[in-house]
Amino acid sequence: MSSFRKRTQETKAIPGTRSSLYNGQTIASTGNPSLDHILGGGVQIGSLLLIEEDPHVVYSKVLAKYFLAEGVVSKQSLFFGSLDDEPEDLLKKLPKPVEEDSNTSSETSPDMRIAWRYNDLPQVNSEQGGQKIGHHFNILEQMSSEDLKESDISTWSKGSFSELIKKLAQKVKTVKEDSVLRICLTSLGSPLWYSENLEFSKDILKFLTILRAILRTYNTIAFVTIPMGLLEKIDEKLVPRIRNLADYSIQLDSFAGTDRETVPAFKEYNGILNIRKLSALNTLTAFNPETTDLAFKLRRKKFVIEKFHLPPELQDAENPQDDIVPSLSCGGSGKKSLDF
């Protein structure tokens, strides 16, 4: 046995965090394994994760619940602020943790007798998330009120940007060094945030700059959802400026209410997930995901992010004659009348 030993600093790990495999930085789970996977294992401590909301604010809210639920299960301090949602109501609907991923039991399929050669091949699973990190949650069931009572949760639901900063500044000072504070702000910049002095754009940028400075200074992570579609209409320049202030920016492009909802190619998914920004914090280079062609779907029990692929067959098998394409020759076999 070699006498060589790698010299490592023996520091006490913060509960609910671990060291990143990619850059060695301390990371925490977002609560959703698929999202963790595309962010390089989790969210780096001191960073801001921005979720660009879908128009109907369905899926971004699901992710916010995952983020808060992970904090409760990991026994971390939580700060939840929103003007649109009643914090107490949303906290009651946090998903319940489950012991094991329900997928693992379905992976063991019986041996194939006819196509036996396929037995040796690995199963194709386009779902993002290889490593087991954080916890698994069942969004169908709700977390018990006892779990919520035990955790340190602060809420904020009324006031302006400056009042929110005051509350945040008070909260971060109460967090111990060996703990992490999770800050979750939903629908930041929605019409309820507009100020009377018409300086909303300046206010939101200043707020995010201060929030980012707070995150960098203390053991905190922030999950902020912003209706970018609305902000884009107020000021086009706001979108890139807000993205620049975030460390990770994920856009949820939902199909609901659009033409794509009925397109056969998209029928397996609820929307496209665009990675807008992954920045390098405390390191030189940012995490580079395997693929950026990602789509999401809300299953019965969980929110899943998958590698986007087209379905194996797009043709309607019931009436194949409808799909016959007229050939160039005059003696085409199609029954449809020619265009000329």
Partner: peptide
């Protein structure tokens, strides 16, 4: 370090 100055004292920092 303006970022740390603001993070440490976001309410009465000279930069703000």
């Amino acid at each position: 370090d303006i970022v740390t100055d603001i993070g440490t004292d976001p309410l009465s920092c000279r930069w703000l």
